[in-house]
Nucleic acid binder design. Structure first.
Lengths: 148, 148
DNA sequence: TATAACCACTTGCACTTTGCAAGTGGTTAT
DNA sequence: ATAACCACTTGCAAAGTGCAAGTGGTTATA
């Protein structure tokens, strides 16, 4: 289900970048996915039950993609992958600081993140702790450090 | 480095199946990798530093592939992947019982497994605990249960 | 000593997947 | 009325995959 170059990248961008629409996924893509491949992967991921697709009420053409319980439970896998990549591949400070934080936070932090994703994507009640805010702060701190 | 259908499968077979040679990887493959693809992946993985390749002293043609420190550190990732797959994909009892055990054992068990892989693949001293033996026992128990 | 089996691949070829660039039909904003 | 936005689709060349057969050499067996 995930054994190709792009599927996990798409899920990562929905999960960590909160990119919920085709256009956002296409433009924001760090790695530069092609438009036809993105369309195909969104179709496959929906079929595989890792994303869901629904129209955005406010705008007749807009489509919103959401994580499902199955893809939310990929958080530990992605956290481990981030931790591994940070150690064994060349990475920039800005792009790895969130992986570092997520690794340090461990399973309790991952659970908090998953609870927050459930509220964002599945309509569950919002948890008290916001791991997303913590990740954003760490990222912005790293960005400022680079630009200083 | 791992974003294709076969690379992680090859590493899994070396790691969990202790398949160390081209022929063993080709024949033992549950998923049926093609011989040219296997040759290509072994080449790529060695180049990427996830496998190492050396001749087997006992037999002039034999080549032994070993895990590296980098691929041994994929254990947590593979453990999480196994745990996820067990929950979200159709799996047989025999083939998932080791994933279950590895998930239940958690990080201490993973560390023990990694220490044992370092002894098997990198020449480190053998640790006291043998996670490999625990996994084998669980697998054989499941096999016997199926055949009863 | 002849022969068979084993070893780690390689080759040729058909088929599938990927990626670029441009385009589609429709909706919303100015 | 027009431009911008939206989620894709299409055509085509290039790259990757997979099957079946073959390669040059080494080791085991009769």
């Amino acid at each position: 289900m995930l054994g190709d170059s792009w599927s996990l990248i798409v899920i990562r961008d929905v999960m960590f970048g909160n990119r919920r629409r085709y256009g956002e996924l296409l433009e924001g893509s760090e790695e530069g996915i092609a438009s036809n491949i993105l369309a195909d992967r969104l179709r496959r991921l929906v079929k595989a039950g890792l994303l869901s697709r629904r129209p955005d009420g406010s705008h007749r053409q807009k489509i919103i993609y959401s994580l499902t319980e199955a893809s939310i439970e990929l958080v530990p896998l992605l956290a481990e992958m981030g931790a591994w990549g940070r150690r064994h591949t060349p990475v920039s400070r800005e792009l790895s600081v969130r992986a570092e934080l997520l690794e340090a936070g461990g399973r309790p932090m991952w659970e908090g993140f998953m609870a927050e994703l459930r509220s964002l994507h599945l309509g569950a009640p919002a948890p008290r702790r916001s791991v997303i805010a913590e990740l954003r702060k760490a990222y912005q701190r790293a960005l400022r450090a680079r630009n200083r």
